[in-house]
């Protein structure tokens, strides 16, 4: 059985959580003060995930780039692959918050979406 100490990132509290697990099976989660912590700890030791935020190049926009994010968390080990995809994007203005610039990035089922409006130049 493996034991891991985590700092919960669910909110600024940063609870210190201890998880006992083996492979996919979690035996205990201790130290969390809410349900988010429990969920985070189980997820983090079995399938760690993160949101990726970055910027993409905009063609014909009032600005040369705009910011984007993954619409949900993606597996942690896909972060750099996802960045490679984001850096290939040439999005055309106008762009609105929520517009999809990459559909199903790296086969994660998650889209990369715009987080800042960009008007036409």
């Amino acid at each position: 059985m493996e034991k891991r100490n985590l700092t919960c990132i669910g909110c600024p509290m940063g609870c210190q959580i201890t998880v006992e697990f083996e492979g996919e099976e979690v035996f205990s989660v201790k130290g969390n003060t809410c349900a988010i912590g429990d969920k985070y700890a189980r997820q983090e030791v079995t399938h760690p995930e993160r949101t990726v935020t970055s910027t993409v190049v905009v063609i014909g926009g009032a600005k040369e780039r705009t910011s984007v994010k993954t619409s949900a968390n993606i597996p942690k080990d896909k972060i750099f692959q996802c960045m490679d995809e984001i850096n290939k994007v040439r999005a055309h203005a106008p762009l609105k918050i929520g517009d999809v610039v990459i559909k199903d990035v790296c086969g994660t089922g998650v889209d990369v979406i715009v987080t800042k409006n960009c008007e036409i130049a």
Partner: peptide, 24 residues
């Protein structure tokens, strides 16, 4: 506008927004 990372607005909007989204 330059804080493009997420983590904004958990208390106000109950969701994690990026800086530009929160500002908007």
């Amino acid at each position: 506008n330059q804080c493009i990372h997420n983590g904004f607005g958990l208390h106000t909007f109950k969701e994690e927004l990026t800086g530009p989204e929160y500002a908007y």
